[in-house]
Simulated assay, not measured.
Amino acid sequence: MNAYLYLTIAIFAEVIATASMKSVKGLSTPLPLMLMICGYILAFWMLTLVVRTIPIGIAYAIWAGMGIVLISVAALVIYGQKLDTPAMLGMAMIVGGVVVIQLFSKTTGH
């Protein structure tokens, strides 16, 4: 399977796990707890497959950068948490960095 597909799965699994974390209230909320645990297990498992092909620094930069942006979108949609202009600008720079890595870096493994 393609490393970028694994990376995409890792990113979405981590976002689901992190978004679920806010709803975990100990063992009294089993669904969010299971989503969190399973999401992180899947995310790290996929990430271990990714780093077999893509250099770990590049894979982690993409995983973390896209995770930050997507969890912010999820928090807005699910919890109504809004970002101010500096936060959105910072995230735009993170996405810009990921784009630069993908377009211009010779260490991305493709």
Rank of each mutant, 00 (worst) to 15 (best):
F104C: 09
G39A: 11
G96P: 10
K25N: 02
Y4G: 00
G97F: 14
M91W: 13
G97K: 14
V77F: 07
Y4I: 07
H110Q: 11
F104N: 10
A64E: 08
M34S: 11
L47I: 14
F44K: 03
A75Q: 03
G57F: 11
L49Y: 10
V15G: 04
G39N: 10
T8Y: 05
V69R: 01
A59D: 10
I9F: 13
M93R: 01
K25G: 01
Y4W: 13
L47Y: 13
I71F: 02
I71G: 00
L7D: 00
K82W: 01
T48S: 14
I71H: 01
S105G: 14
V69S: 08
G57M: 05
V50K: 03
T18L: 04
V95H: 08
W63C: 02
P32Y: 11
S23M: 01
A87H: 06
P30M: 06
T53A: 04
I68S: 04
L33C: 06
S28Y: 04
F44P: 07
V15N: 03
I94F: 12
S23L: 02
W63V: 04
E14C: 06
Y79L: 01
A61E: 03
M93S: 08
V73F: 07
L83G: 03
L31Q: 01
P32F: 08
G80I: 07
F12L: 15
G80N: 04
Y79W: 01
L103C: 11
L35G: 05
A3C: 07
A43N: 08
M93T: 13
M36I: 06
K22V: 05
P86W: 10
G96C: 13
S23V: 00
L31M: 09
V99H: 07
D84T: 07
T53D: 11
G57I: 13
R52N: 09
Q81R: 02
T29C: 05
S72Y: 01
M88T: 03
M34V: 10
A43K: 03
K106R: 13
V98A: 14
A43E: 13
L31H: 02
G26C: 01
A3M: 10
G39R: 05
W63I: 05
T108D: 08
G109A: 14
A10Y: 12
Y79G: 00
I37H: 11
G90W: 08
K22D: 06
L76N: 05
A61Y: 01
R52I: 08
V95I: 15
I37N: 06
G57Q: 07
T53I: 12
L89W: 09
L27F: 09
L42M: 13
V98F: 14
